[in-house]
Amino acid sequence: MSGWFALVTDFCVFWLFVAAALCLYRIVVGPKAADRAVAFDTLSSVAIGMICLLCIRFSSTLYFDAVWILTLVGFLGSSAVAKYLAKGRVF
């Protein structure tokens, strides 16, 4: 874990925060629910990225399972909202 690599990781983590903040802006403002759903989906992708970087930063693979679950979760969340918007019911 050489010095410059840690620096790069931190730099990337910071910029992921910026991306997350932008997504959050869309969630807060988003005129319609659909926008918020999209932002929510991107937020889950940003979260996956964040976890990967933090795995590297803490050099432990314990959190790697969360990546898998976040994918499933992100998909479920947005498709449920999409179906609700389209058909008014979820199942």
Binding site: F75, S79, A80, K83
Partner: peptide
Amino acid sequence: DEPGGGFIAGTLLAAAGAMYMLAFGV
């Protein structure tokens, strides 16, 4: 040994069930 366990597995299965219902109906 690693993070996991009954509770998480149960919820994951429920999520899978939800996905199934989402796609193929109840």
